[in-house]
Design a binder for these strands. Structure first.
Length: 481
RNA sequence: GGCGCGUUCGUCUAGCGGUUAGGACGCCGGCCUCUCACGCCGGUAGCACGGGUUCGAUUCCCGUACGCGCUACCA
């Protein structure tokens, strides 16, 4: 926190964090770390309709899992709290009054219904759907009349004429003509602030230096700049990062499958993967490298290298990257994550050393941890049933029977079984039967696992142990004699 | 409708006036003498379109098309 850089992540507590939000949080965090600045977590829960308290905990969990730690926030406090907007309503009212007093905002008595019909009529006439300024210059008498009717006013911002220009750190210079912006509501009838207004007040009060958010907010920016100006406070810098899209180029949503962070966590994606992958959506390292540690991301992050266009979320590449991380992660770490999944599947996890070995074998094969459950099935069977037609065909061959009988005899003749001994055994079997290659190995694989695919056989036999192997082979040669 | 933003292989992207347009994922083929996977090697495929500016445009400008966003008493 050695610099004046202060950024904020300001989610609405509506559930688990969405991939897009996580990316916004991540880029804010990366920029804060890169600049030695402060990362503020602010909860935007002004709308009682959609905000739920219990969801705030979910947001903490998601952020913590990603290791995106915040310096100020509702739970840790800070100099500029409270950090929940629902606890700052008096502040917004005070600022609204300030604007009202200086004539930069005014009361509007139009009802939602009236607004709606006005909008429809305007559209029908092919005119702008913006608020036409009906209550812009109400006399005291008119106001009194409305009040007498029992109407409760909203507060509207009086949009001044002119151009609003700003230099976006990602998109460059952007300009708006305010004639395209209608006077907008900053305080609802119930005295609840609108998002645009609360954000401006808070960004100012919390001394936010850089507003980093999705580019769906670009069009909101001129409104906010107008409000900063009306409040006569300095402007933050803006950086609008591109949207994340689904394969159909529509904004990423539930229809596209897993979009909520916890789904990835539950399926055994690693937090490091998500950090790496999400940072690469619309940003790239100058080096061209794609597997980047968080330290490197922090070091190299730069708005100049954030692309301007939206990015389609590519699950295939995420899977590939997660596989990379799984292969490079300590087996013990993976085991800890896999244990509950195995337990859930009903596997016997009492032998931790064995589980560790299984994970060692499987971490070379999977793209996400949940896949280990299926692959591990062969290590927890106490009977082999062969359902795959291809496997049955293999085991039915005469040569297979020869191999298995020979293999069984060898097994019985040895004291214990390990990888080297297994290799010797297979050599003997080959010599004795004259069978080699596929015809030699596949029957053993099928007999031991019931499958035609799986980890390399030496790993399988050492995990199964002599007794299991003997039992399985015996059962098979018995069944198919 | 108005306004804003965007457009390089299927996808993520590099490129910041002169390149055989590079990399990654995916896909295809090959190799690793049991399979799948991993790994390695090779291949496939792209500058939306039309005008300018320039000796020269993927790159700069304008227009068109398409996509997305905003236009709420949601955020």
């Amino acid at each position: 926190m050695g610099s004046d850089v202060r950024v904020r992540f300001a989610p609405s507590p509506t559930g688990h964090l969405h991939i897009g939000n996580v990316r916004t949080a991540l880029l804010n965090w990366l920029f804060a770390k890169h600049s030695n600045g402060t990362f503020v977590l602010r909860i935007e829960d002004t709308d009682p309709e959609r905000s739920k308290d219990e969801y705030i905990g979910l947001i903490y969990d998601d952020l913590r899992w990603m290791k995106l730690d915040w310096d100020e926030g509702p739970d840790v406090g800070g100099l500029y709290g409270p950090y929940r907007q629902s606890e700052r309503f008096d502040i917004y009212r005070r600022y609204a009054k300030k604007l009202l007093d200086t004539g930069k905002a005014y009361h509007c008595y139009c009802t939602p219904d009236e607004l709606d019909t006005m909008r429809k009529e305007a559209l029908a006439r092919n005119e702008s759907a913006n608020y036409p300024g009906t209550c812009r210059n109400l006399t005291d008498e008119q106001k009194a009349a409305f009040e007498k009717e029992g109407r409760k006013p909203v507060v509207r911002f009086r949009v001044p004429e002119g151009d609003v220009k700003f230099n976006d750190l990602v998109k460059g210079e952007i300009q708006f003509d305010t004639s395209n912006i209608g006077d907008f509501v900053i305080m609802r009838q119930e005295g609840i602030p609108m998002y645009n207004f609360a954000a401006v007040v808070d960004d100012h009060l919390m001394k936010i230096s850089h507003v980093i958010r999705g580019d769906d907010h670009v069009s909101n920016t001129p409104r906010q700049i107008l409000m900063f100006n009306a409040l006569e406070v300095p402007l933050p810098q803006f950086a609008h990062i591109p949207m994340i899209l689904g394969p159909d180029r529509q904004r990423l949503s539930k229809r596209h499958g897993a979009t909520s962070l916890d789904e990835y966590r539950d399926n055994g994606y690693l937090a490091e993967t998500l950090v790496n992958f999400l940072s690469l959506l619309s940003w790239s390292s100058q080096s061209g490298d794609e597997i980047l540690s968080v330290e490197r991301l922090i070091e190299e992050f730069d708005f100049g290298r954030v692309s301007k266009s939206a990015a389609v979320f590519n699950p295939d590449k995420l899977n590939w990257m997660n596989g990379q991380y799984i292969r490079n992660t300590e087996t013990a770490t993976l085991t800890k994550l896999v244990l509950p999944m195995f337990q859930q599947a009903g596997y016997d996890i009492s032998n931790k050393e064995r589980i560790h070995q299984i994970v060692t074998v499987l971490q070379e094969k999977v793209e996400f941890l949940e896949q280990m459950v299926g692959h591990a099935k062969i290590f927890f069977q106490d009977h082999i049933s062969i359902t795959d037609p291809e496997a049955r065909a293999i085991i039915h061959k005469d040569s297979a029977q020869k191999v298995l009988w020979s293999f069984l005899r060898e097994l019985r003749s040895i004291g214990q079984l390990d990888i080297d001994i297994f290799r010797d055994i297979m050599k003997h079997v080959q010599k004795e039967t004259g069978i080699m290659g596929k015809d030699l190995w596949m029957p053993v694989r099928v007999a031991l696992t019931g499958e035609i695919h799986g980890p390399e056989l030496p790993s399988v036999i050492s995990l199964l142990g002599k007794e299991q192997c003997e039992k399985f082979v015996q059962e098979i040669v018995g069944d198919y004699r």
